[in-house]
């Protein structure tokens, strides 16, 4: 398929006639808009896109995308998507999922898809709550969270989705925020360009059941103090006046203030291709600690063979060595005898 045969699309070409049934003010609208904006720019025929989802608010996503779409069952989108990719490696398969769908009921499929490096883009809408079932705590809810099912506070220690993905061997791990439209689109485009599993945690606001879950990171005044934007080859700098940075201290990180002999040269230079995934893991854990910012951007981008390509080439390899299978010979294989 050459680029010239791909029609020129606009955002509208990826919208459906279905009435969108998310609550007014839901962060999902912004994510939908970002995806519909970048798909026309990817140079991919529309029929080659498949959006697969599980169950939850985010999993309604396929109905609103004018591509092929499969709204499957709770937690199983990664395995449905894996079956699609193994059968048709040429398709562009995106999974829309939530923190309950992909980290709780579907946690097993998520980690196994990531370790295999199946060429699937995963959009994890993380709002730290179960929305569609009306407000129970989720596996990313903070310890002590008071929700419908935890009137006295949750006793569960939460998952950090980025750490989990890195630990599972994901080759592309990134994070963005629903309302950071420009950043979100750039991150999605980078994910689209990645060969292999791309895991994107999108911090998303559920204004009904968990409003303001991320306001610490999204409020204009707080943003620069609490977020560090990762940029390949650039030092890790944050703060209202770019006055703070992050540098290595032994095997750990520390926050430093620039000046008094501390310059940008002392700071960590972001390398998403760092061969040691411990680096990305350190970044993913920062925000859990007092005084550290939350990273957004691409934490890790490693080149590795895609699973579906390995599966296809193994088949080709066996065919070239043994020849294409002959059904008659297969049925007659082994010891046979003739009855006259």
């Amino acid at each position: 398929m050459t680029a010239t045969t791909v029609p020129v699309y606009t955002k509208k070409d990826f919208q459906t006639d279905q009435e969108i049934r998310w609550c007014p003010g839901c962060g999902d609208y912004a994510i939908l808009s970002a995806v519909q904006s970048i798909f026309p720019e990817l140079g991919i025929p529309r029929e080659k896109f498949v959006i697969v989802s599980g169950i939850g608010c985010s999993s309604r996503f396929p109905y609103y995308m004018n591509t092929f779409g499969f709204h499957s069952i709770h937690g199983r989108a990664p395995s449905v998507a894996t079956g699609i990719k193994l059968t048709r490696p040429d398709l562009h398969v995106w999974v829309a999922t939530g923190d309950g769908d992909s980290l709780s009921i579907g946690g097993n499929h998520t980690i196994h898809m990531l370790r295999r490096n199946v060429g699937i883009k995963v959009l994890l809408f993380n709002n730290r709550i179960y929305g569609l079932t009306k407000g129970q705590y989720s596996p990313t809810s903070e310890f002590g969270k008071k929700a419908k099912s935890t009137p006295f506070g949750s006793l569960d220690r939460p998952f950090d989705p980025l750490s989990l993905a890195i630990g599972a061997g994901a080759t592309f791990v990134a994070r963005s925020v629903d309302i950071f439209q420009q950043h979100l689109k750039e991150t999605l485009k980078k994910a689209a360009a990645h060969q292999g599993s791309a895991f994107i945690e999108i911090l998303q606001n559920c204004n009904i059941f968990n409003d303001g879950a991320w306001e610490n990171l999204t409020e204009k005044d707080a943003r620069s103090e609490h977020v560090v934007q990762l940029q390949q080859g650039q030092p890790l700098v944050f703060g209202k006046n770019h006055e703070k940075g992050i540098r290595m201290k032994g095997l750990d990180l520390e926050v430093v203030t620039l000046g008094n002999g501390v310059t940008e040269k002392d700071l960590l230079i972001h390398d998403e291709q760092n061969p040691n995934s411990a680096y990305a893991y350190l970044l993913s854990q920062m925000e859990l600690r007092e005084g550290f910012p939350a990273p957004i951007g691409v934490l890790r981008a490693e080149q590795a063979p895609r699973y579906e390509d390995l599966v296809a080439s193994q088949i080709q390899d066996v065919v070239s060595k043994r020849g294409r299978g002959d059904l008659g010979a297969l049925l007659q294989a082994g010891d046979t005898w003739v009855v006259k």
């Binding site: 697969v52 199983r76 990664p78 395995s79 998507a81 894996t82 079956g83 699609i84 097993n108």
Partner: peptide
């Protein structure tokens, strides 16, 4: 496809059938 569990085994097959 030797899946990670019985559920992934059947749902991957559903994905393959869809394709």
């Amino acid at each position: 496809f030797q899946a990670e569990d019985e559920i992934a085994a059947v749902t991957s097959a559903i994905g393959a059938s869809y394709s």
